[in-house]
Amino acid sequence: MADKTAMIRLENMTKIYPMGKRELTVLKGITLNIKRGEMVAIMGASGSGKTTLLNLIGCLDRPTSGSYYFEGNEVSGLNSAQLAQIRGEKIGFIFQTFNLLSRITALANVELAMTYSGGVDHERARDALAKVGLADRINHRPVELSGGEQQRVAIARALVKNPSLFLADEPTGQLDSHSGEEIISMLTSMHSERGITLLLVTHDDNVAHHCQRIIHLKDGEIIAEEDV
């Protein structure tokens, strides 16, 4: 509450998964601040805990211990319905594997996001697809679209809710370099034009250097932060 500009504040957050009799500690006390309007990359090797961190920030999961303030409100103690509401209204996800429903059209996929936040509005869904350059492909199903186009549908789906936070988990991981560039420039311009807070998990240094800050994770700990 104190710091209005802090979009996300994590205090000594841990995540431990039970693995049969043993426990697997994925995050070992993460303390992190992300300001409103920032564009931050999280980098690290596989298994460093970056996706788990992103899932926690995206309210898809709850931390084992520690505090998480989202827009100044403690959310680590919220129930699943309240977390779902935050996901629906405040957060737009972009996944490496796009995660579109394959049997319905691009437009229906975008409208799906609106189902759980405020209600379907065909005009806004069309606008969102137009903004990502897919105005002429709204009635195509994902299988009829290229990887880059599918990811653009996913961006439109995130965009249509007008969220305050974008979370992208290796958004270019399955794209060729040209499509990857397109997606990154699209995300960058959304950030600069709309002031959306953007958190990006990536392996790719080129992608990371579009961001303002890079956080390096290793074995569940932040080992370095650099400003670009």
């Binding site: 509401q85 996901r87 996800f93 799906l112 996001a113 189902t115 759980y116």
Partner: peptide
Amino acid sequence: TREIGIRKALGARERD
């Protein structure tokens, strides 16, 4: 299952 995951990521509650 995956569809359910997507819906939940998009804000679907358990009730939905």
